[in-house]
Amino acid sequence: MWPRSFEQPDVRPDEERSLRPFICLSAGLLALWLTLTWSLDPQEVATGLVVSLVVASVARSAVHSVTGCPGSILRRVAWSLAYIPYLLRAIIAANIDVARRVVNPALPIRPGIVKVRTNLESPLGRLFLTSSITLTPGTLTVETSGRELYIHWIDVEADGIEEASERIVRGFERYLERIFG
C-alpha cells in the first residue's frame, strides 16, 4: 500500500564487475580513517589500509550502485563545495524563522502537508534533496513517491504544486542536478 521511498537504482552489469567503485570506496574509507586517527604513522596507515579494503569488499555490493565514481568528478566536487554554504545559509535563515515563530506569543503558524514535484532522476540526488528539505526547519519530508514529495510545511505560503515546488525544491535542485545528474 505504501510505495517505496526510493526506487532501486538500475544495476549495470559492467559496473558490477568493475573495480573502480571498490577502489573509490576504499580510498574514501582510508581518508576517513586518516582524518580520525590524525596521524601518518606507518602502523596507523597500514591498519587503516587493511580495514578499508576489508570493509569496502564487504560493503561493495550494497553501495557500489549509488557511490560509483562519477566521470566528471571535478565539476561535481566543485558544485558540491558550492552547495555546502548554500545549504548552511538556508539552514540558518530557516532556523531563525522558526525560532521567531516559537517565541512569538501569537504562535503564527499555518501548518499543512503540501505536494511538490522534483525533476531529479538519480535516487541519491533525491535522497540529498529530501534530506536538505528536512534539515531546513519549517519543511519536513513526510512521504515520497517517485517524483512526488509530500512536505509538512509550518507556514503554507503556496498551495499549488508548481508554486510550492518553486519555493521548497528549486533552490536545492539547481545544485543537486549538477552534482548527481
Binding site: I91, N95, V98, V102, I113, L135, T136, L140, H152, I154
Partner: peptide, 14 residues
C-alpha cells in the same frame, strides 16, 4: 506532532 518535530528536531540543527 509534526509541528513539534519541526521545532524539536530541527531548531536544534543550528
Amino acid at each position: 506532532l509534526y509541528n513539534r518535530m519541526q521545532a524539536g528536531t530541527k531548531a536544534t540543527t543550528l
